[in-house]
Amino acid sequence: MSAGTRKIDVIVTDVVPVNELVKRFHFQRTDGQLLPTFSGGAHVVVEMRDDDRTRLNPYSLMSSPLDTRDYTISVRRDDTGRGGSLFMHQRVNPGMRMVISSPVNLFSLDLRARKHLMIAGGIGITPFMAQTSQLAGDAGNFELHYTCRTETLATYADVLKGRYGRRIHLYRDDQGERLPLEQLLASQPLGTHLYICGPAGMIEWVRRTAAEAGWPDDTVHFEHFAAPQPGKPFDVTLAISGKQIRVSEQQSLLEAIEAAGIDPPYLCRGGVCGQCETKVISYDGNFLHNDHWLSEEEHQSGRKIMPCVSRFEGKSLVLER
């Protein structure tokens, strides 16, 4: 009963620079068949084979779920991250063969909603590209509010405005424009659902404001993949397989476990789906938990870790793997 998804062999058919920070990548199947149908909000995990190491990063699908000839993702360059986005920006070119996972949706629309209110920050716009296409195809009622630093970094704002006109609202930081959140939340009809995707701080702010305004938890949906953070190298003992591994500075614990030939299940690699949850047998040191899956209590207990995004500092760590 191990989880995980099927792999799909794809070819990069196009790489389009969108602005100074974002590039868009188009994939088609190498066998020429259609890609699997997906639902708006789904992501794929892209395998990046960078010489001797493999990184697997999740990216939201932004193409229309109604057209599965190709999949598109957009990647924002992060010059201080672990190098996944730099790999995509610098090493991936049209014609290159890659492997992606089948789509998985952990940020699904609630189709009961009378209205879908979407709030995007920066590159958090990508899942909404697919969700708005899906809703527009079925006469769905939605409204998108999009915050960005500058007009040029308002990735796809022009595309969205062209498609949906007044349903798209743009707020540019450098123009002093601010999302009137409280007013917006107060004026929505009963049965509205709220969706948030963007930086962690924005998600926190919107969730808190919505809770204070009386929005029930079940109406507030958010997607925040925690990107694995680089950190100090650390050593781990894998008790079941009897292996000693070292997690390097730019590697996640999950990647290091995989590099040792062990394949824990995963879906999101971003600390939200819970699949790679791993039991801690013993430890001497401190956990650096970065996931959104385990409870605060579980984080404190020292009994579990999510190896996709969390790290460790200290003398010894023994895991049940």
Partner: peptide, 10 residues
């Protein structure tokens, strides 16, 4: 009452 209400109603 419900048909004309807004989010924030408890």
């Amino acid at each position: 009452t419900l048909a004309t209400a807004h989010m924030g109603l408890r």
